[in-house]
Amino acid sequence: MEAIILQVLNGLDKGSAYALIALGLTLIFGTLGVVNFAHGALFMLGAFCAVTLSRILTLSFETIDPTRTDFLGNPMTVHTPYVEAWFGEAVGGTIIDWAVPLAVIIAIPVMALIGVVMERGLIKHFYKRPHADQILVTFGLAIVIQEIVKAFYGANPIPTPAPEAFIGSFDIGQILGFDPYAIMYPYWRLVYFFFSAVIIAAVFAFLQFTTFGMVVRAGMADRETVGLLGIDIDRRFVIMFAIAAVVAGLAGVMYTPILSPNYHMGMDFLVLSFVVVVVGGMGSLGGAVAAGFLLGILQSFASMSQIIEALPGINQVVIYLVAVVVLLTRPRGLMGRKGVMED
């Protein structure tokens, strides 16, 4: 029982990331009808927002401290971040420590801007082109973005730790009545799960309870009729693209303490997120979220040592295997709507 709960929990954080990326992909697909292979790159850009912010915050000046000497006997050079000099050591230190959560605030406008530029600059011209062209051009864009990031930040993963307050693990087992230390779960993963739950809820609430969301949903169902009613649906769809970019970006920002960002993390997640979208059903938001968590948890179950012993290699392929089975038995995915992508 402990083992099962532990695996479910372990699957949650990866599942959250899949769900967030897949949600954005589905939003873009459902509204604009575009298959966006550059969505993983947006996730990666979000992660690098956090890296950039933490680099900016730790920008420092050098002073020579005559009271201390290094091992050669020379006076020691001390690096003091500007933030600590301006706000005092305690406050400045806390700001640096909280770089990743703070990056969320920076990432929202940045990712929204990137999303709008991408849509207006490139994707707009591909609405009428076949899906193959959309896939290819966004694939090219993903390569370009990824290489630009590589040129600036190098090819190595950049560790970006979580705030000190969230380092360590939380003993969930004790709360649920198991032995102490039976189920340990890192705090940050818990934070990540709640964070993504909030974002998913916010996106759904936005679509469900606002007039804007209602128009967008109407546009997803029948774009032409909404246009005939005198509503500029294109402008709203641009905003949805920006929202999808922000969702992917935030997923990336908060994921940095779990996985040190590197330039190809976007591609790694993209392939899996596409599988998630297809399993969930192209164009179904609920399906994307459900399939994201489902596959995340399945993957963590498949990584259990007992299961790997019985079926070696299953942890590597379980997601693809599930995708194949789902697509062949339920061609529209778990919750796919009729008439989407069936041309």
């Binding site: 896939i135 392939v271 297809v278 192209m282 995708a323 697509l327 061609p331 069936e342």
Partner: peptide, 13 residues
């Protein structure tokens, strides 16, 4: 058995 993007994803998988 599938076409379009589904085919692409299946081969990728």
């Amino acid at each position: 058995r599938r076409t379009g993007i589904y085919f692409s994803i299946l081969t990728l998988a």
